[in-house]
Design a protein around this nucleic acid. Structure first.
Lengths: 354, 354
DNA sequence: TTTAGCACTCTTTCGCTTCAAGTGCTAAAT
DNA sequence: ATTTAGCACTTGAAGCGAAAGAGTGCTAAA
């Protein structure tokens, strides 16, 4: 692609077209640009430039007698090089801070709250993503006794806590419970789900001796929690905003997009889980991508707990989107969430107590 | 309303009209009914009856030269007295059972899974509701020590478990932790959130003596958990199915419905939280109800844990809905969920161990 | 190199007619 | 006393062509 050199005027025109299209949602013509804008040349000149921009792939024409519309490449160029980023006012930043800081709590809630805010502030649909975690391992086991046959297994994963009720087929005295806990903490801490093999399970059963019956339900519970944890999840806020934009009046497209959102995979796959850039990413749907995302854009930023990507928040909407505002909002929100996660954190986890 | 007496023939005609409208989605006329159906009279007779049914409020006419469409009252009458309920085949029941029983786990997950199934089986949008709980009280406190300044508070509410990370402003030795737990279990078990007043808090602080600093963050955590728990929640599955029905091609109506769903209150308020009937309920949207639910119907059944309503699953869609199938599915699913909850339950919770 | 002007293309819109569906009513038939 | 056939009437939907409007590309002049 020859993105490298575009004359200053071409850039100016391209930007003006994208701006106008974003603002009004309709194809924009040469006449309008000549009149209303700070372009000094005439409509004919603009027409020539537009023809060239179209040839280069930055613009598209719905039909011969319509104005031009930015192509996917056009949007890409716009967000990558033409967009000057919106800087939030102190007031706006404070509003975000205040709302978010108000209730600090677990990751899930922080993320949902952040996406709710993102939706309210931008008037687009927002998404909170918990990406699939590969190789999660328990860092510590604890348990709470409910009765002879029942206990709550508490699993710590770094600073995340998950619990699971476990029902045992026979009575487990309190002493055996400590035994179980010790066995678990020694055999399964730091072990990923793939590494839990028959050897380890037999080892556990051996250690538990006459109480080996407890191993099976406990392992099942561990599996269930880990599966739940690394499954990836996605919450949507402000879906109705989608309907405000005429590009989704086409039921077909809306349906495909909803399909992508509900199916989750299309969107989960967009989020890189390895330690990735700390900046806002912008995905612009194209023919190669998932079907539902065509003509839609997804502005997101990942959220990290230390080095690990634990989530992302983002805004989804038509390609024609108020990028500067959306980018600024998503950025600020992710920033704040990051800060909360890395401050309010319990400093360091103790090793298992013996 | 004079629902009491409708001639047999009127009932027959009304049923035929609703059936046909449900099947094809268009106003139905006298001619069609006379030809295709098991009605023995002529179109003229039917016209007369239809005029009367309209006068009585069971039917509506979009415009003079269109056929009739059931009114809200018409649907009501249909589901209440004309509908013969669909009885599921063994195969269908088994499919539900199999899918559901496969992964038994916590309430939230069971409900989501059930609603996912409901959506798949009926091809409508399904909803899992956790209604607002009034007067939730902790039945037991436990905690897991993470470090000198950090612990995980485990709160049991009947058979529901919630955890919360608590960060303490100063070091709490292990001995004080047992003290804290005892204090909590004695002062706050069985106490609803409204009953947690300054006296109780001071009492706690007194008991904790030099470790009184721990009370504030713990109380905050308890509040947070309870608020989260009684907040009510709602998950939606298969939203895209809504778009399959022409009644939601009107973006306005779709938007209002989505608004109602996202806002949650409109739907939460429909679910009775007191011990209510064990049967499927059908809400049919009317002018009095929430704006978003107009021309939509909501078929749901509550799910109970013992006597307490802990959730509901339901299907939402146009008034013109395949009621027999939807009712049967929702009913069976709720039945199964109920069964799972009341079997897989740990029998009875022990009192706090001392 | 830019611009004015103009012919050309294509969609949108409007008014018009026609069509078809379905009713309500009247008068005849059972 | 009901039921039915027949018919006039109403009204939205569908089809069609003309006119309007928007925007382009191209040519020729500045």
């Amino acid at each position: 692609m020859s993105e490298d050199r575009l004359s200053a005027r071409k850039k100016q025109i391209l930007k003006a077209i994208v701006d106008a299209h974003i603002a009004y949602g309709e194809p924009v013509g040469s006449k309008y640009l000549a009149s209303d804008k700070q372009l000094t040349c005439s409509s004919a000149t603009i027409r020539n430039e537009m023809a060239e921009l179209e040839a280069m792939g930055y613009l598209e024409q719905p039909h011969t007698s319509a104005g031009r519309v930015p192509s996917e490449l056009g949007y890409r160029f716009y967000v990558d090089s033409l967009l000057q980023r919106y800087s939030m006012t102190v007031g706006e930043i404070e509003r975000i801070n205040l709302n978010l800081r108000h209730k600090l709590s677990e990751l899930d809630q922080i993320l949902s709250e952040a996406s709710r805010l993102a939706s309210n502030l931008t008037n687009y649909t927002a998404i909170a993503v918990k990406p699939r975690q590969s190789a999660v391992a328990v860092t510590r086991f604890e348990c709470v006794r409910l009765g002879e046959h029942d206990l709550i297994l508490v699993l710590l994963f770094g600073s995340t806590v998950k619990t699971k009720n476990v029902h045992l087929p026979a009575a487990l005295p309190e002493s055996a419970q400590t035994l179980l806990l010790a066995a678990l903490n020694e055999s399964l801490v730091g072990v990923t789900v793939e590494q839990i093999n028959i050897q380890r399970i037999m080892e556990l059963e051996r250690r538990m001796g006459e109480y080996a019956f407890a191993v099976d339900p406990v392992i099942k519970a561990v599996y269930a929690v880990i599966r739940e944890l690394d499954g990836g999840d996605l919450k949507v806020e402000g879906l109705n905003h989608l309907l405000e934009y005429p590009e989704y009046a086409d039921v077909g497209r809306l349906q495909r997009l909803l399909g992508s959102i509900e199916n989750k995979d299309d969107i989960l796959n967009l989020i890189p889980t390895d330690a990735s850039s700390d900046d806002v990413n912008i995905y612009i749907g194209n023919e190669d991508g998932p079907d539902g995302m065509q003509k839609s854009a997804f502005v997101y930023r990942t959220v990290k707990d230390g080095d690990r990507v634990v989530g992302a928040i983002g805004v989804i909407g038509p390609c024609r989107m108020d990028y500067s505002k959306v980018i600024a909002t998503v950025n600020q929100l992710a920033e704040d969430v990051n800060e909360m996660l890395n401050l309010s954190e319990p400093k360091k986890i103790e090793g298992p107590k013996e």
